[in-house]
Design a binder for these strands. Structure first.
Length: 262
DNA sequence: AACTCCGGCAACCGCTATCCT
DNA sequence: GAGGATAGCGGTTGCCGGAGT
């Protein structure tokens, strides 16, 4: 596949936007909508590429964008969502009305990441769910089973990608583990972790078996399981509901003093 | 006051996903 | 189904202003 040329033509302006350009773009979109971004600058009379126009509109000019400092609630939400979703800034932004993915990304890199690095609290990372087919409104079994867990350092949060260990459970019903990036830091998890009935391994923790869609047996050693997972919750909702599901779980878990261990 | 350093942020780049013909 | 066009996403860069020396 050949990459579409963008900004290749000489004469297209780059760099910071002038107020006049902002005004032209804003009034054009308010009047006509953005439609085809590639055609927009020509029709609006801007010497910019469509990509640049789109970015400017989405990150700065859109009327519903909330500007100003992030509240502590927003920051906490970003931290929690990042632990669930990783660097999926657009998904995080979707949970914060008025905030853009770019803004959230910047806040994360300039502020929140450092804060987490400095904190000595134990943190656990997300089930990271990546859609393989955005046309599908149902999370497939393999999607639901595709999690990343971050091995925990007992004194500080891990941040580098090498700290991630990815465990893929199943295509169809076959259970397998692959893509383990860091064996040194990977907790020992054999297949029984995922498939066999719960065994109490830590005195203060109880492992519980969770069933997703009544098909995928999944061990998730939360404390207070009954509270954390409603028995009736079936994992067959659409993607956003799925995100809400995990967000809800994580929020409740993270708020408790006892964090899950793997 | 002048200079350097550093952090924050806007914008760009490169890639993938999705749409369309 | 193939291939091109477009949209969208995440990583990176570079500018600018404030703090420190």
């Amino acid at each position: 596949m050949v990459r579409a040329p963008c900004c290749e033509k000489m004469g297209l302006k780059k760099g910071p936007w002038a107020p006049e350009e902002d005004q032209i773009l804003t009034s054009y979109i308010q009047k006509h909508g953005h439609g085809n971004w590639r055609a927009l600058p020509k029709q609006a009379g801007l010497l910019r590429c469509g990509k640049s126009c789109r970015l400017r509109w989405i990150n700065y000019l859109k009327p519903d964008i909330k500007r100003g400092n992030f509240t502590s609630e927003e920051e906490e939400t970003i931290i929690k969502l990042h632990e669930m979703l990783g660097n999926r800034w657009s998904a995080i932004a979707a949970k914060l009305p008025g905030r853009t993915d770019n803004e959230i990304k910047n806040v994360w890199h300039t502020n929140l990441k450092k804060r987490l690095l400095n904190s000595n609290s134990r943190r656990v990372t997300k089930p990271k769910i990546k859609r393989s087919d955005s046309n599908s409104s149902i999370i497939t079994e393999s999607e639901a089973a595709n999690f990343n867990f971050r091995e925990m350092d007992s004194t500080s949060a891990c941040t580098t990608s090498s700290d991630f260990s990815s465990v893929t459970v199943g295509e169809s019903k076959n259970i397998k583990c692959e893509d383990i990036e860091s064996l040194e830091t990977m907790p020992v998890i054999d297949e029984s972790f995922w498939s066999e009935p719960a065994i109490d391994e830590a005195p203060s923790m109880s492992s519980q078996s969770m069933t997703i869609s009544n098909q995928m047996p999944f061990q998730y050693p939360f404390t207070n399981y009954e509270e954390t997972f409603p028995q009736s919750h079936a994992y067959d909702s659409n993607f956003d509901d799925g995100m809400d599901f995990w967000y809800d779980i994580f929020t409740r878990t993270a708020d408790s003093t006892e964090l899950p261990e793997f």
